[in-house]
Design a protein around this nucleic acid. Structure first.
Lengths: 210, 210
DNA sequence: GTTATTACGCTACTGTAGTAGCGAAAAGGA
DNA sequence: TCCTTTTCGCTACTACAGTAGCGTAATAAC
């Protein structure tokens, strides 16, 4: 792919200037402060040029945030509790990075901010939703591998519902950011993994030895 | 509160007409199809009158959806597995009701639709966010009571982290609707509760009886 | 009654996302 | 060199959220 195209080639510096400008506005002023007109003006670019690359403001915002994400590898140390906790911390870090965008540091920050707008963007545009689902699928496949190896080592139940386990873990983080406004930090990641591993049922039964 | 006010009283029929019209548009065409100008025109009301009641489109949408929700009581039958499953089904029903708004029935419906827009509305406006958190807090307090009673009956671990358990349960539902696009139905509710109750760790140790 | 107060409808306005159409510039292919 | 294709900048436009100001209607307090 990427063969030599026919007409005038795109100016890569234009892409760069737009994305840098948009990133500045988005991180400083949040989603409503990301104005297409202002991005175009500050980047020294016609608005139509911008729309030739990203068809909506949502698409531009997704492109900006996608550049800020680091890789989504997952460590496998052989200790499932430690590895899942590390995985949760990675997700929490990514969420917290977006969460604080666009608001003064002194403010009581319970808002989902940019995270919520990106989720909504995925709901508004099929292609963005599909991108998000692919990111999720990739991340989830890696985590399923981690769990499967731990299961084979005997750390986890043989009949474990791994998909549900991952929904519970990641879901709790998103839920706190998007719905309850509660913080997601290292301490919570540890409580979360502990709860999921241990289960809720009471198992203390007096050993029945004849 | 609600003392006799000074000036001309508000026309309750105006509220009703606006909300009915807005509900029709929102459920039929989804969030982008909810146009303030069109609501005002169809309801036979000036746009300024509408804005006197709901300061933004987001507020109007929240008011519409709030009227569609039923009560959030939680059954307590004495069987924690059954009760939690019922609670999950209630949340799933509410999510699914909003999820299908505004799209043709034949379409492959992975989108979060109105749910995502409402979450974003909570992030955009502090007062809406606060409302959402109060709904959550109320619901959560009821569920915490349910869990505490089950714990006292001995069904659940004495050292259970109940807050985390509820985050895991409700979080998984929201996560599937908002992020992964997976369905949330009765079968999933059962898997979810089973996973949370049983835990992930392998506990099969040969009983050590001398 | 009169007055103060609030609701309502109306017109006109701003700001922003997104589109249409045009001419000029930059490339490849003939 | 000439033709085609695509990019880019420009101007002008639509659609929609939200606001400002005004005249008028409906109510309570006096």
């Amino acid at each position: 792919m990427n063969q030599a195209r026919r007409g005038r080639p795109r100016d890569a510096q234009v892409d760069e200037r737009i994305l840098r400008t948009a990133a500045g506005l988005l991180l400083e002023r949040g989603y409503p402060g990301l104005s297409i007109d202002e991005v175009a003006e500050r980047a020294g670019v016609a608005k139509t040029t911008l729309y030739r690359r990203w068809p909506t403001k949502d698409h531009l915002a997704v492109a900006v945030v996608a550049r800020l994400q680091d890789d989504d590898r997952i460590d496998d140390t052989g200790d499932i509790r430690r590895d899942l906790t590390g995985y949760m911390e990675k997700i929490a870090d990514a969420l917290n990075r977006m969460r604080s965008a666009g608001r003064p540091a002194d403010r009581d920050d319970r808002s989902a901010g940019v995270v919520a707008e990106l989720v909504a963007a995925g709901a508004r545009h099929d292609d963005i939703g599909e991108m998000g689902r692919q990111v999720y699928a990739r991340r989830n496949a890696l985590a399923l591998g981690l769990i499967e190896r731990a299961r084979l080592r005997g750390e986890l139940r043989a009949d474990l519902d791994a998909a549900v386990l991952l929904d519970q873990l990641a879901g709790a983080l998103y839920y706190r950011v998007l719905v309850t406004g509660a913080p997601v930090d290292r301490a919570y990641a540890e409580r979360l993994v502990a709860g999921a591993l241990d289960g809720a049922l009471n198992r203390k039964e007096p050993p029945t030895c004849p």
